[in-house]
Structure formats: C-alpha cells, structure tokens
C-alpha cells in the first residue's frame, strides 16, 4: 500500500511537472521564433539544440 502510494505520488509529480515544463518550454520557443531572430527552420532547430547543450 505504502509502496503504491509512493510510486503514485512520484508518477503524479513527474507527469504534472512534465506538462508544466513542456508548456513553458513550448511557449518560450514560440516567442523566440516570432521575435524574428531565427529566419529558417534549420536555424530554429539548431538554436533549440544549442539551448539544450548549454
């Protein structure tokens, strides 16, 4: 029972955090693209990869 509860809470935290992180990350990408800095999809993609590395 306790084990179920702990696993459950971990899964709940991971999934809700995942939703929040992806929401904020996606918003950040959209705003960056529309701020006009990168021109091509290749540049956008490279920027995303560079951000992940740094």
């Amino acid at each position: 029972m306790t084990f179920d509860l702990i696993i459950g809470l971990i899964l709940l935290t991971v999934s809700l955090s995942g939703v929040i992180i992806f929401t904020l990350w996606s918003r950040h990408i959209i705003e960056r693209i529309h701020s006009g800095s990168p021109d091509t999809s290749k540049e956008i993609h490279e920027n995303i990869i560079n951000e992940r590395k740094s």
């Binding site: 992806f22 990350w25 996606s26 990408i29 959209i30 693209i33 529309h34 091509t40 999809s41 290749k42 956008i44 993609h45 995303i48 992940r52």
Partner: peptide, 17 residues
Amino acid sequence: MRDEMNYGFMMPLFPMP
C-alpha cells in the same frame, strides 16, 4: 520537408515526443 516549411513552432526534444 523541413526546409520548405515556415514553422511557427518546432517542438523540443524532437523526435522523442
């Protein structure tokens, strides 16, 4: 077709999601 498209959003961690 990446170079032909004008993306307004490109998902992070592609192609994992």
